[in-house]
Nucleic acid binder design. Structure first.
Lengths: 179, 179
DNA sequence: ACCTGAACACCGTTCAAGT
DNA sequence: ACCTGAACACCGTTCAAGT
């Protein structure tokens, strides 16, 4: 017997490990010790499983942001965010793996996550004294750099895969993006 | 009768439009007026088609870079690159669509493209007078911002989809990333 | 040289039947 | 309430046979 949560967790780790394309019901069923027919008692279809799993993931991402948000100094808060981006593989690999999906549910999740992070950044820059428009532009640039760095690091085809000068890169980025 | 090139071009436009997941041999065959069996005379399998198509794409990307490279002033060269990123949908949609693929051929293509673009940026920053290490860090940051901006703009779940303040954003980014 | 058409394995989905 | 097992459509792949 497998619960909804079981399916969702297995799905998340499959996607983080092998991408959305490798997600298959028979494999999940086998590793849960049931037949694939049982899947359809819990979910209407594969898309719905992905959608449900993503809600879990959104919560995790929100919690991570909230944790960083508790840092009072906006400078140090931003630095913590960039540093995390280069060091929490499992969490960010999911973002990267999902980012090219065309399923509507995945896109909605990504949209919500992107908006939340962007608001987080805008707020930090406002606290640093940026006027509204400039805070938004700088936050957007910083978030673009953040997203791009995630891709380059966790995509297996990028430039930031080695751990060598990662600290140097983060330091330089912080210096450039945060006055 | 369909040539290799026919299959490759149809494949590229399919992927740019609907992502790698929507690429299917029967659909390609139908739109080329042949049966799917004929596909296997030209290619060993779907992966190989994708690999071949990507070589075409790499050429296009290289040509685009070369064109920008003809701009003598490194400042103006970098600005042109960022501006293009926000305005050449078709070309960049492919990069975004492919960036989460796990096929080995796709990853190799992306790696080559990423390296070429990064070298391009490093060279520009060196011409601007940056010392080697700093040129590399700044170029990496700029490329991360570039890649992230592509994703946010062409991914249907990002923050840069509207055309409103795109120019403002580009201007601010250029100002921040280029001294 | 290039293609058809039938075949097979595999995955998503449905559903009647089991406990 | 939760699952099995068989069925079906669909896609990737193979291959003998056609022109």
């Amino acid at each position: 017997m497998a619960t909804r949560a079981d399916w969702e967790q297995k799905a998340l780790s499959e996607v983080a490990a092998g991408g959305l394309a490798r997600l298959a019901i028979p494999a999940l069923a086998r590793s849960l010790g049931v037949t694939k027919g049982s899947f359809y008692w819990h979910f209407q279809n594969l898309r719905q499983l992905v959608g449900s799993a993503l809600r879990r993931w959104e919560e995790m991402d929100r919690d991570a942001l909230d944790e960083v948000h508790e840092i009072a100094d906006p400078r140090r808060r931003l630095i913590a965010l960039f540093r995390d981006a280069m060091h929490k593989r499992q969490a960010h690999a999911l973002y990267v793996a999902l980012s090219a999906a065309d399923a509507a549910e995945v896109r909605s999740s990504l949209r919500r996550i992107n908006r939340r992070r962007l608001r987080f950044l805008i707020e930090a820059y406002r606290e640093l004294g940026f006027p509204p428009k400039k805070a938004r532009d700088r936050a957007t640039l910083a978030y673009a750099a953040y997203v791009g760095a995630l891709h380059l690091r966790y995509q297996n085809s990028g430039a930031l895969r080695r751990n060598d000068d990662l600290d140097g890169f983060v330091a330089h980025s912080v210096e450039t993006l945060i006055p």
